[in-house]
Design a protein around this nucleic acid. Structure first.
Length: 541
RNA sequence: GGGGGUGUAGCUCAGUGGCAGAGCACCGGCCUUUUAAGCCGUAGGUCCUGGGUUCGAAUCCCAGCACCCUCACCA
């Protein structure tokens, strides 16, 4: 028998022993449990001295994280959605329920009724008089001090990661708060939230390879959307003047710390606006997300790192790369905290302070190219020479494609602070309106922060003839990842007339990364795509 | 796809060409104020997989698999 089986067998025996004692190991409805932070809030005004019990009764429930049984008295630390609290259980108080305590394990979920008190050492404790088993855990939880650190296992068993590592749960709570705030921000501006097709017969709105699938009854090929753009613009035609969608998009591309094959984007369209209005929308949404999560998060994280640093010995510092990194980031956190106190929207990402306070710097694409690559955007020969110098293969590529590759190689890594880069080469922007004074420029911007592309926006192209021509033009060097996929119905929609509009897409996962100091997109996606492991369900097997 | 790294007990990790190690968890004993509880005593291993070198491989070499980092592509 393997160690794992042996541990499980022991728990099975305890489960059966519970049943013998007349206890249902799987629990049931448990009304009126108070979250642990509320218990703490309730205890505060009592001003309890160490060793004193109050007369305030509470009911709490949570997973057993620590367990200390000594003879006829036991202490356990349970964790619920809000935090942890200590429970005190004694043979004297529990009476005939006491034997059940002996059958509890780390990881079990329990509820108790009892009174609030403080132990001799001053720890806030719920002294239980009734114990309710809510769920017997059949597997040993991770080590109590380090939690689950194996990255592979953390993603594969995110449910364990979540209950074992409170920081992880905090990050996803922040993700939820950020999305709610962004949504609220747009609803307040009079936007409709809409849902458009995920399964699309023609994919478009972005340059990416799609996932393909098949509908049996209609016997047709379908694509998982790479973007909702062309459907949302149809809604503008229909008179829905402000629409947004929080859209799961699917792109059959590489996986990295910044890319997951399915990712969440908020895309919005606003009639009678343009890309400058969209810049304001980005600033507003980022501010809403910041206020919902980062403002408090920075202060919490400061305190957490300080506490951690105070506890660390020299030896720990040398051994623990993460602790060392955290300590290195403390300076940035202090700076961000001071920034917030001074009324700015300062957060920390990867050890750098990012300032989201509007207005963000607005930089012209051509100026940045001039500044960092030393070439003029229109000077094709100079751009290609620069490409040579950078080792970029460009012989078979169109000018605009080469310009953009040089831009990406020379400029993007300088864009640390939140910045709008605007007025892109028109040829790589088939869905964008041209600059009124220069046909080679498109009214497009991308928002950058921490060198990541955070968002992409246009003054939308609403001339059906130009749109149709753009769809028919595939640029050399774009490969099969082109935005130029003909969508005739979309042209028809434009022929009926789409109001002039601004449109914007913001990568939600990336926004959450930036606002929660999460260096990998996998830290903000609950179940990032992973190859199935042996023994895991897979249709192919 | 290229480059670098990791894979040892349920978890966190040491380790060495010669019997497989620690801490936590688990099991047994003592224990009514502990809190990373403590003390005593046990038990627990496909050292990722498959080859090769060797008297002997968990260790060295090769290949594969998984994951992480990085570059490329992309958002």
């Amino acid at each position: 028998m393997s160690e794992e089986d042996r541990l499980k067998t022991q728990r099975i025996a305890k489960r059966d022993a519970m049943i013998e004692l007349g206890v249902n190991p799987w629990g049931g409805r448990f009304d009126g449990a108070v979250s642990t932070d509320l218990v703490r809030a309730q205890a505060e005004p009592l001003g309890l001295e160490a060793g004193v019990k109050s007369e305030v009764r509470v009911r709490v429930a949570g997973r057993i994280m620590l367990l200390r049984v000594m003879g006829k008295l036991a202490f356990m630390t349970i964790r619920d959605g809000a935090g942890t609290i200590q429970l005190g259980l004694s043979k004297a108080e529990l009476g005939e329920q006491w034997p059940v305590v002996k059958k509890l394990d780390l990881g079990d979920i329990v509820g108790v009724d009892g009174i609030i008190g403080k132990t001799k050492t001053g720890e806030l404790t719920v002294w239980a008089d009734t114990l309710t088993v809510l769920c017997k855990s059949m597997l040993a939880p991770p080590e109590k001090w380090h939690g689950l650190t194996d990255v592979d296992l953390r993603y594969r068993r995110r449910y364990v990661d979540l209950f074992a590592n409170p920081d992880v749960r905090e990050t996803f709570a922040q993700r939820s708060a950020i999305i709610q705030a962004v949504r609220g921000c747009l609803v307040d501006l009079g936007y409709y939230e809409v849902d458009t097709p995920v399964l699309q017969p023609i994919y478009g709105g972005a340059a990416a390879r799609p996932f393909t699938t098949h509908h049996n009854t209609l016997d047709m090929e379908l694509f998982l959307r790479i973007s909702p753009e062309l459907y949302l613009k149809r809604l503008l035609v229909g008179g829905m003047e402000r629409v947004f969608e929080i859209s799961r998009n699917f792109r059959n591309e590489g996986i990295s710390t910044k890319h997951n094959p399915e990712f969440t984007m908020i895309e919005l369209y606003e009639a009678y606006a343009d890309y400058e209005v969209m810049m304001e929308r980005v600033e507003q949404m980022a501010a809403a997300g910041f206020n919902a999560a980062t403002r408090e998060g920075v202060v919490k994280r400061c305190a957490a790192i300080e506490a951690e640093c105070a506890r660390l010995t020299e030896e720990d510092r040398a051994d623990d790369a993460k602790a060392y990194a955290d300590e290195n980031h403390l300076g940035a956190y202090h700076e961000a905290r001071d920034g917030i106190a001074a009324g700015r929207l300062t957060g920390v990402f990867a050890g750098k302070v990012l300032d989201f306070t509007p207005p963000w710097p607005r930089r012209k694409y051509a100026d940045l190219l001039e500044e960092y690559a030393g070439v003029a955007m229109a000077d094709s020969a100079a751009v290609r020479a620069k490409a040579d110098a950078l080792g970029i293969e460009h012989a078979k590529k169109a000018d605009a494609v080469v310009v953009n590759e040089v831009f990406e190689a020379t400029v993007e890594h300088h864009l640390v602070q939140p910045t709008f880069v605007y007025d892109y080469p028109a040829a790589i922007c088939p869905l964008t309106r041209r600059h009124p004074e220069d046909d080679s420029i498109a009214l497009r911007f991308e928002a950058f922060a921490a060198t990541m592309e955070l968002g992409n926006a246009y003054t939308e192209l609403n001339d059906p003839a130009v749109q149709e021509a753009n769809f028919r033009t595939t640029l050399a060097g774009e490969g099969d990842e082109t935005m130029a996929v003909m969508d005739e119905d979309f042209i028809t929609a434009l022929e009926y007339g789409m109001p002039p509009a601004g449109g914007l897409g913001v990568g939600i996962d990336r926004l959450v990364m930036l606002l929660t100091d999460s260096p990998s997109i996998r830290d903000v996606i609950l179940f990032p795509l992973q190859r199935p492991q042996r023994g895991e369900p897979s249709v192919a097997e």
